[in-house]
Simulated assay, not measured.
Amino acid sequence: MSCGDHSQPAYGTPEYHSAGAAVMSFAPIQQIHQHICAFHPYAHDKTRATRAHHFCTHIRPDMHQCVIYDGPGDKARLIGIEYIVTDELFKSLPEDEKKYWHSHKYEVESGLLMLVAKPGVSNETMDTAEQPAMRELRKTYGKTIHTWIFDEYPDLPLGPPQLMMSWTNDSDWETEEFKAAVAARDAELGVSTEGKRTLRAAYLPKDGFEPDAKADYPTHCGKSVMLKPVEVDVKPL
């Protein structure tokens, strides 16, 4: 008498993934509702920056949490995380904490930071849809750690994590390499950074807001914080 085939799909195969989706919950990931694309310069090295695709969740009105990939596709590498807080919450942080955070005002106003549309969604639709987000994000700050330094180690996430910042003025990305990176992003997504800059100048509030001077530490102080491994004694049980 045959009892049937009780073999299971091999680990890592599409069949195994489908079986997992049928019996497990992915609730935190399913709360993601926003796809943001921007560029992250290294906090300690202004000559290096990477494109970053953020997939974000609002965990409360004054805070987002985002997982960051190097691209928008299904084979993208998970390269880091970013926490985004409002101006009010940032001002409440301990003073020594603020050096890890960067502002978003320039990124929003310049058009460098943008929401990413699904294929088939027009730029006109997206330009309208992203306006509430841009009004909010303009007055926020991010704390970003990249765990996969893929521009140096493309195959594996080697080395210590790195603190990342944001560009805060036009001169930060005036090199030919950075201009080419922005142009390549725009071409791939079918968007225009300069077009968004012009459009946003018409609808973003002219309220005199300036980021807190304690953010963007490398820009203001010419120094940065690096995350370096330190060997310590293990605390026993």
Rank of each mutant, 00 (worst) to 15 (best):
I36E: 00
F90P: 13
S25L: 14
R60L: 11
T50K: 11
I32R: 07
M1W: 14
Q65R: 13
I32W: 01
T50A: 08
I84K: 03
P61W: 08
A49T: 08
A21Q: 14
T47Y: 10
E97H: 09
Y106G: 02
D70A: 07
H6L: 13
G73Q: 07
A49L: 09
I68N: 04
H17D: 10
F39D: 02
G80F: 02
F90M: 08
E109L: 02
Y42C: 07
F55G: 05
Q31C: 06
D74E: 12
S92F: 06
L112C: 04
K75T: 07
K91E: 14
H44I: 01
C37T: 14
L112F: 06
P9I: 06
Q34C: 03
Y83Q: 11
V23F: 15
Y42E: 02
S7H: 10
H33Q: 15
F39K: 04
V85P: 03
D5A: 12
K105V: 13
G4N: 06
A52Y: 00
A22G: 12
G80P: 01
K98H: 03
T13E: 05
G111D: 02
D62C: 02
I81E: 09
M24D: 13
L112N: 07
I32Q: 11
R48L: 10
A49D: 03
V23D: 11
Q8Y: 13
Y16H: 13
S7R: 14
H33R: 15
E15A: 14
K99T: 10
I68E: 04
E88C: 12
E15L: 04
G80C: 08
I68Q: 07
Q65F: 00
K46Q: 03
G20M: 14
Y83M: 09
I59Q: 00
S7Y: 00
H58F: 04
M24C: 12
Q34H: 08
E97K: 15
Q30K: 13
S103L: 12
Q65P: 01
T57D: 12
A21I: 06
P119E: 11
G12W: 10
D5C: 03
E15M: 08
L113P: 01
E15R: 11
F90D: 11
T57W: 00
F39P: 02
D62L: 01
M114V: 10
S2F: 04
T50W: 08
T57Q: 05
Q34R: 05
C56S: 05
I84V: 14
E95D: 15
A43S: 13
V116N: 04
G80K: 09
H6R: 14
H102I: 10
H40R: 11
L89A: 08
D45Q: 00
F26D: 04
T86Q: 01
V108M: 05
K91G: 02
M63Y: 02
H53P: 01
E109V: 15
